[in-house]
Write a protein that binds this DNA or RNA. Structure first.
Lengths: 245, 245
DNA sequence: AAAAAAGTTTGACCCAGATCAATAACCATA
DNA sequence: TATGGTTATTGATCTGGGTCAAACTTTTTT
């Protein structure tokens, strides 16, 4: 079984300041100098913990701030006027979210934990002050939103491709991000259900199940419920269309 | 035939400063004070004109700045590693683009004119200076990128819906945006080909043609080549799933 | 540990929209 | 006003992935 801890000796319950948090290099970036980090640290609300399925924020809530996931995972879900949900993205530790509330002053989506998770918050009313005094932090946020924009562009283009390609892509993307967090890229715990994966990729849950089975038959992956093992990364890369063969 | 002029007496060839440009309220927003606008105005490169199919920027080009369309229209196109194009969005006068180059320092997509168009540019090397001295402009850019983020979220969710709904949505979205620009919402010139519409909506061009025909049979629209007339907006709204019935 | 609920797999069948193909309309340019 | 090249329409056919259904497995609750 996987624990939610991020790195060895890391206690998610501990209220560490930003400058000594081992997620700093993921949340922030090398351009943000120590003084701006400590300035940030002063206003960040640390370490709230939620159980699976609980909401970090609801669609429609007044914009209260930007959130940084500390441990666990979460999904960003958009609900349209007909009540139909779409899993827009999956959040891993060290990733920021909440920008969907910044434009209009209320969140467009809901951010829902996929397992027991903890997070920090940079409150909205501190945001404008901090970014005015800390130009590198300001730039960081602009950078992060542009990165997200690019991520969505690739996601939109990907949606046109066949089911198998999208799934391979999804598995490799998670592997990559797990690795960046010091976890194993070769095997990991899928915190989403087949239903949620399907929703995220625009597929029926049955199709996800079948495709996972197919990849397993082809000896490219090993599936045991939510535990995934990638046996043939190059092969998956070829399938995903990202790595030209 | 439609002209490219935006408002009566507007000459797109004229090199007007930002503060007297009648696109100001679209490019910028009411929060940006006059002194910041004139500061912006000083560094903006104005009014380059291109013919249909020419590139404002190419994917892979070094990030040179943010662009504002003055007249005409353009498409943002992402090309994946297999050379497969996707029309990510359509740009109308007063809209900004180029944020896809800000994260990595080179553009992820290409911005291609759909007809004879003119545009302004805010050069990258001026960007950091301007936004440091002009906090409202800085906030504006952050705001615009977050709005785009939200637009993409809705687009991703929409991609799951049936073809007819997506098309109705697309037609109404253009109508809305034409109206915001002082053009008629009821009828407008589609600057995209059926191929491009299909690509944008994830459909084959034949499907676009058939669906337009179907909507025309249902007396909801009138189609004559690229000229579109919306006869039954409420009906289209119902079809689009955006307006609950 | 049993029961209930939630999630997963597998099979049979179906359909929205793709693909293929042929024709027709709309241009540009000469 | 021909003429060659895009762009659009329409019909026939096909298929990837959806839907429905039933059994099975895992997790949660009692």
């Amino acid at each position: 079984m996987f624990s939610n801890t991020f790195l060895p000796n890391y206690d998610p319950g501990q209220k560490v300041a930003c400058d000594v948090c081992n997620l700093t290099r993921l949340c922030l970036n090398p351009d943000v100098p120590p003084d701006e980090i400590s300035q940030l640290s002063r206003v960040v609300r640390r370490n709230r913990t939620l159980q699976r399925g609980q909401y970090i924020y609801h669609a429609g809530d007044r914009f209260t701030g930007i959130f940084a996931l500390k441990s666990g995972s979460a999904k960003l879900v958009y609900t349209d006027r007909l009540g139909c949900d779409t899993v827009i993205s999956v959040l891993l530790p060290g990733e920021l979210q909440g920008f969907d509330g910044m434009a209009s002053g209320q969140y467009l989506c809901s951010l829902v934990t996929l397992e027991t998770s903890s997070y920090c918050e940079l409150p909205a009313h501190e945001l404008s002050q901090v970014t005015q005094d800390a130009p590198n932090l300001q730039r960081l946020f602009q950078q992060k939103t542009c990165e997200m924009l690019n991520g969505f562009i690739e996601r939109i283009a990907n949606a046109q491709r066949p089911a198998e390609e999208r799934l391979a892509n999804f598995l490799l993307d998670l592997a990559q991000r797990h690795m960046e967090r010091g976890f194993s890229a070769e095997q990991y715990h899928l915190s989403l259900t087949r239903q949620e994966i399907g929703n995220h990729l625009g597929l029926a849950l049955e199709t996800v199940s079948r495709l996972l089975g197919k990849l397993e038959c082809a000896n490219m992956i090993r599936v045991q419920g939510k535990h995934i093992q990638l046996l043939d990364m190059p092969g998956l890369g070829r399938l995903s269309g990202k790595i030209p063969s």
